[in-house]
Write a protein that binds this DNA or RNA. Sequence first.
RNA 1: GGAGAGGUGGCUGAGUGGUCGAAAGCGGCUUCCUGCUAAGAAGUUGUACGGUCAAAAGCUGUACCGAGGGUUCGAAUCCCUCCCUCUCCGCCA
Length: 424
Amino acid sequence: MLDLRLIREDLEKVEKALARRNGGFSVRSLVEVDEKLRKYQGEWEQFNQRSNQISGEFKTGKVAKEEIEKLKTEAKELKLKREEVETAKQEYTEKLDELLLAIPNMPDPSVPDGHDEEGNVEIKVWGEIPKIENPKEHWELGTALKVFDFERGVKLAQSRFTVLMENGAKMERALMNFMLDFHSKRGYREVFPPILVNKASMQGTGQLPKFEGDFYKCADDELYLVPTSEVPVTNLYRDEILNEEDLPIFHTAYTPNFRREAGSAGKDTRGYIRQHQFNKVELVKFCLPDHSEDEHEKLTADAEAILEALLLPYRRMLLCAGDMGFSAKKCYDLEVWFPGQNKYREISSCSNFGDFQARRANLRYRPADGSKTRFMHTLNGSGLAIGRTLAAILENNQKPDGSVTVPKVLAPYLGGLEVLEPNR
RNA sequence: GGAGAGGUGGCUGAGUGGUCGAAAGCGGCUUCCUGCUAAGAAGUUGUACGGUCAAAAGCUGUACCGAGGGUUCGAAUCCCUCCCUCUCCGCCA
């Protein structure tokens, strides 16, 4: 949510910033609604004030008899008048909320212009692209290695659901534990949140109200399957006022993630890249406004450190204004190399949200000097998407005979398993 | 799923149609006192939006005692609906 005061005071700046995103956002109609709301609110408060005066007189018990009926009549009339403005007031409050919640975050000045991924800027490249002759894609390798069972996943659920078999299941679990341990050692406190969350949580991070159809929702309860652990973890401190000394707070969390939208574009119809259910270890930060830029770089580096530990070649992209998610102010994507596909694919998205989510979720802190509460800043990033990591390991570590070497850092999690071999 | 109890400020916990933004205690903050610590004394202590102000402070208006409606000149207090929590029983990993 944007700062309404900023919209009032510097509409042009807001409009300019939002114009860099795709799609039109009517900030101007919001200003009109805001003006009307404030007018009605003022009137409503004046009626209340007079009503309070009248009941104050009754309170003293010194009202002359002939005055009683007069005052009662006036109070009743006031009530009617107030109800009239109240309807308008409520209407405009709802309208304003609706508009405010539908406006995306303003891109940071350091974010490049652009409408789609073509506009993204490569910031760094890490690792050697392996030289593999006739590289196979991960689904082919994974099926032969009994890592994936795609057909049975469809049987159990639907297309884009996959069963991890034996070594696949073990690898997935190893990656999950490795990542959680890794981040824990670097100062992130581990949490394991609910995987069903309520509407307020979904709204707090920006999934709702705009993207209702993208998520799985329970039929009989007002609950959603989390599309990312960002939702429950960022909402941990919703409606709370923390002390400045409490910040920064770093959390890491594993959850499964559920997305209906995955696959709607018809891309990646094969394989394990785009699933309705996938596992992810997430990094979430809460910090002081002045620190979020710095924390964003560090968080991205923490996600990169996983790829480096696994010896997977990747690059870091700075997303352009048109390609960024709704809530983000600035976003880096990490893309890992897929030899079988001969291209980089997204494996992590690290965003700085500024105070955008904090306003929605009412995440505040009390400055150390005791002054007025302020909104904190929030950040998060995948550290990493586990399914895609598994797929990338298969493709990058493949041997001509179809076997796959297991990254050394995973050995402790796999009982010393070093190689995945077919026919075993 | 059945039966009951309850939702009040950072916490514990009073409260009744008006004097209640709300007793008291704890905690927090400020000052005083005392070699230090501990203890003690006094004061202070919610959030949001608006007005005043150059701004902050201050002052001031409105709202908020789970949410929404109703009764009343006036509701934390009475009535209705919903949500949530707790206890007991049942079921269950």
